[in-house]
Design a protein around this nucleic acid. Structure first.
Length: 460
RNA sequence: GGCGGCGUAGCCAAGCGGUAAGGCAGCGCUCUGCAAAAGCGCUAUUCAUCGGUUCAAAUCCGGUCGCCGCCUCCA
């Protein structure tokens, strides 16, 4: 498989460091607010990459950090007048709830910054000893002038960095404006930890360096995040990690583009700031959201609209209907060799598209192609054919994650009984009674399908 | 100022040198007691625009127009 490596700005064939294994680090949330749909795009994309790696036979070790100490979490806690942990725990729970709803596979570890202060202090000490960092007024800064490769990931020249308002507003003293804080000296009212270089708290960037190193080692395969993380966050991670360890940090950097809402940047003032729970509250299905989020290539800006969400839901139902039909095939018989070959070819084409920089649209196209080919001969299918096709859908879905396992449960006896009553009424031409039962079931979210092969039902 | 991206049917979206995937919507049809659901069929001589390279270009090169992102804590 190949994908676009931000570090080299080229499509590169993926090569793992240790055969068959992948060390994966994804930048997790800063837990000062509810995750919004844009955050979710990044998480879902990262999940897609991870699922495809697993699908391709790799053993993936996935680490996703949780930033539970930074300017924003501190500010929030102080605004609300509650302990930091009270704020962060609430949003950590919300974060996990979203991931579950979106069918995102859990990471192996979710390290929290506040639980890794000693590792960070140790890393900063190393950087101080090696002369890559300096203390000033109780804070410690990284000296980017000491790292010749600084700016490689973001493709920027350190000297050319625009010095904007944020720099002049910085309350900490630095030698060079581009230098960034590794450790921020204690300020009144802020949480702090002891350190050889003075009481204080860690800067944001050092968290990820310390935690990725602890769980994945100094050199690992893939690091992902949103495009906004490229500079300065990931650039700084590289600088810190490589200076401390003296080895290359990460081989492949993958960055997910942002999404916009109705053609405009998401912002609270415009009122287009969706969270997943907003959408679910309006009756949208989480799997439709997931479908929409993955259907646009990850390096393209995604224009998120409610109309698009409806379209995604419809497309998804085509897949669900296909699965439903397959589960209702009842004909005995041999498996069709030609069909089996078509299934094989489709799966290979699906994988080929995914292996080409995660071309989900192309991969989905292959899947729908097969569905379109099979649908006309649904009635001629044998059980063996259906099982083969269901296996195909399962394989594809192990990557896409758009079908929930309980989409079609076992037949419920109560529902079956109601259907039998309706059939009896129909036979007796008591259509009023039959329609009544149909309406009742519909109200329970059960849709009846009167097919030539008898009545079938499914959940809406 | 610096770095970068995009413009393909009503909408979403692949294709990246060999003659326009797929999804949604729409229209027609099949099935049906009627519906619903589902299924089937149809729907871009053309890829913002102008010019160039080539036997061949949506795909490569140059110009123009339009839209957008990032440049210190925002996924």
């Amino acid at each position: 498989m190949r994908f676009y490596n931000t570090l080299t700005r080229r499509l590169e064939e993926f090569r793992e460091i240790e055969k068959g294994k992948v060390g994966l680090y994804t930048c997790g949330p800063t837990v000062y607010d509810f995750p919004h749909i844009g955050n979710n795009r990044a998480y879902v994309f990262e999940d897609l990459v991870k699922r495809f790696l697993i699908h391709s036979g790799y053993a993936v070790r996935h680490v996703m950090n949780i930033t539970d100490i930074d300017d924003k979490t501190i500010r929030k806690a102080s605004e609300l007048g509650v302990p930091l942990s009270a704020v962060t725990q609430k949003f950590i729970d919300a974060f996990h709830a979203d991931l579950r709803a979106l069918n995102v596979l859990p990471a192996d570890v979710y390290p929290r910054a506040t639980e890794h202060i000693p590792e960070m202090v140790g890393l900063i000490s190393q950087l101080l000893e090696k002369g890559f960092a300096y203390e000033k007024d109780g804070s410690v800064y990284f000296s980017i002038g000491r790292f010749p490769n600084y700016g490689r990931l973001a493709n920027v020249e350190p000297e050319s960095l625009k010095l904007g308002a944020a720099v002049s507003a910085d309350e900490y003293e630095k030698e060079a404006v581009q230098d960034f804080a590794l450790w921020k000296g204690k300020k009144p009212g802020e949480p702090s930890w002891p350190a050889p270089f003075g009481e204080g708290r860690p800067g944001w960037h050092i968290e990820c360096s310390a935690m990725s190193m602890k769980y994945l080692g100094p050199h690992f395969d893939i690091h992902m995040g949103g495009v906004d993380n490229i500079f300065p966050h990931h650039e700084n991670e590289i600088a810190q990690s490589e200076c401390a360890n003296g080895v290359a940090f990460v081989n492949f950097w993958l960055h997910c583009q942002h999404l916009i809402i109705d053609g405009q940047k998401m912002s609270k003032s415009l009122g287009n700031f969706y969270t997943l729970s907003d959408l679910l509250g309006k009756g949208h299905a989480p799997m439709a959201v997931r479908y929409l989020l993955i259907a646009t290539h990850y390096r393209k800006l995604l224009n998120f609209t409610l109309e698009g969400l409806e379209m995604a839901a419809q497309a998804l139902s085509r897949v669900k209907n296909f699965v439903f039909s397959l589960k209702n095939v009842g004909t005995e018989g041999e498996a069709d060799a030609e069909l089996a070959a078509a299934v094989q070819a489709s799966l290979a084409a699906f994988q080929k598209n995914m292996a080409d920089d995660f071309n989900v649209s192309g991969a989905l196209g292959e899947m729908f192609d097969l569905i379109g080919k099979v649908n006309p001969r649904l009635n001629a299918l044998s059980r063996a054919d259906a099982a083969n096709l269901l296996g195909y859908v399962e394989r594809v879905n192990s990557v896409l994650g758009i079908l929930e396992p309980d989409d079609q449960g076992p037949l419920d006896a109560e529902i079956e009984a109601r259907i039998a009553l309706r059939e009896k009424a129909r036979r007796e031409k008591d259509y009023a009674r039959a329609d009544e039962i149909r309406a009742e079931l519909k109200a329970q979210g059960i849709v009846l399908l009167d097919t030539p092969a008898g009545v079938k039902w499914k959940k809406e």
